[in-house]
Amino acid sequence: MSSNSTPYYYVPGLSRHPAMAALGLVAFGFGMTGWVNQASWGAPVTAVGVIWVLFVLYQWFGDTIAEANAGKNGINVDVSYRWSMAWFIFSEIMFFAAFFSALFYARSIALPWLGDVDSKIIWPNFTAAWPNDGPAGLVEKFTTMGPWPIPTINTLLLLSSGVTITIAHHAVVENHMKKASIWLAATVALGVIFLGFQVYEYYHAYHDLNLKLTSGIYGSTFFLLTGFHGFHVFLGGLMLAIVLRRMIRGDFTADNHFAFEGAAWYWHFVDVVWLGLYVVIYWM
Results as ranks from 00 to 15, higher is better:
214 T>A: 02
248 I>E: 04
266 Y>S: 11
229 H>W: 01
114 L>D: 02
208 D>C: 09
8 Y>C: 05
130 W>D: 04
25 L>V: 11
131 P>I: 01
27 A>V: 08
186 A>I: 06
177 M>Q: 06
67 E>M: 10
67 E>I: 01
174 E>L: 15
249 R>K: 15
77 V>R: 14
233 V>P: 07
64 T>E: 14
170 H>K: 12
21 A>T: 03
220 S>V: 10
261 E>W: 04
8 Y>D: 15
247 M>Q: 04
108 S>M: 15
72 K>Y: 12
83 W>R: 15
91 S>W: 05
271 D>F: 11
223 F>A: 11
86 A>E: 15
197 F>S: 07
50 V>Q: 13
236 G>W: 09
70 A>G: 03
266 Y>P: 13
140 E>L: 13
10 Y>V: 06
42 G>S: 09
45 V>W: 05
254 A>S: 11
63 D>L: 13
230 G>C: 00
246 R>V: 11
218 Y>T: 10
138 L>H: 10
168 A>K: 04
64 T>Q: 03
209 L>Y: 06
223 F>D: 05
32 M>C: 11
244 L>K: 08
236 G>P: 12
167 I>F: 13
100 F>W: 07
38 Q>M: 07
249 R>T: 05
132 N>L: 15
190 L>S: 01
63 D>N: 11
26 V>R: 03
214 T>I: 08
281 I>A: 03
266 Y>E: 01
109 I>N: 00
94 M>N: 11
232 H>L: 05
52 W>K: 02
66 A>H: 11
104 F>G: 04
10 Y>S: 06
185 A>Y: 00
167 I>K: 02
180 A>D: 00
242 I>V: 14
112 P>C: 10
198 Q>S: 05
4 N>L: 15
255 D>F: 10
218 Y>G: 07
150 I>Y: 08
34 G>L: 11
61 F>R: 13
121 I>Q: 04
107 R>K: 13
206 Y>K: 11
278 Y>W: 09
111 L>K: 06
132 N>V: 12
228 F>L: 13
51 I>H: 07
170 H>I: 09
274 W>P: 09
126 F>Q: 03
45 V>L: 04
105 Y>L: 09
225 L>I: 06
252 F>Y: 05
281 I>Q: 02
255 D>P: 02
87 W>N: 04
30 F>H: 02
